[in-house]
Amino acid sequence: MTAVLKVENLVRAFGGVKAVNGVNFEVAPGELKALIGPNGAGKSTCFNMLMGQLKPTSGTVYLNGENITGRPPRDIWRRGVGRTFQITGTYQSMTVAENVQMALISYHRRIFSIRSYAYRLYREEALALLDIVGMADQADRACAILAYGDLKRLELAIALANEPTLLLMDEPTAGMAPRERIRLMQLTADIVRDRGLSVLFTEHDMDVVFAHAHHIMVLNRGALIADGTASQVRNNEKVQEVYLGGGTLYEQEKANA
């Protein structure tokens, strides 16, 4: 089976600094995969390149076998990639349902249509998507007054509007209470199972990562240092070092002790 997402030798340099330096990985169909790493390791840069917000300096990104490197975000979306952002980008002046309807209008290529009222279009479909994430009861609330966790769930519903084969989620649980985090990831895992899509997500809450991800990749200083199951990653010495410090300082401390 071909990989849903295949990344080859991805590099992105800012000035002279290589934020992402030769990353290779694959995401298999139906896989829930996490990309973790310390702040500044290059997770967001990596993500932005996958979704087209940033152009890679070099390297290739394949989606279901098709080269999508450097295409604009809207193109990549049309090819079946949904995305949620670390800082939510919902439309504040619309209702919850309208946010999803907007994505559906775009999916059905009716952006420039002026024939009908937008709030009536694809409402049933939107409600069905909201139902999946448990937001149907809040469909007519203004997006601007939603609680943070609800916004995140709304974003998930929006990301499903184009029937994606791959979901990219950037820090999906950032800023949420621990219980909400578990709920959201459980929901994501259910969606992966029910809809057979793949998810790649970045996350800093290790509980979330180890509880839900099928596979985990660890990024450090722009390079992957581990890619495997939870226990493989947990026992990887290099990963231990990155997360618990180390290097010369660690040696020095051991010498002092």
Partner: peptide, 25 residues
């Protein structure tokens, strides 16, 4: 303003990033 076109326009205003990431040019 109430048509899909108007909504798309409002979407680009509210969050150009989100609009771009959901297929809106």
């Amino acid at each position: 303003i109430h048509s899909p076109f108007g909504y798309s326009l409002r979407a680009t205003r509210d969050s150009a990033r989100q609009a771009d990431a959901t297929g809106i040019n």
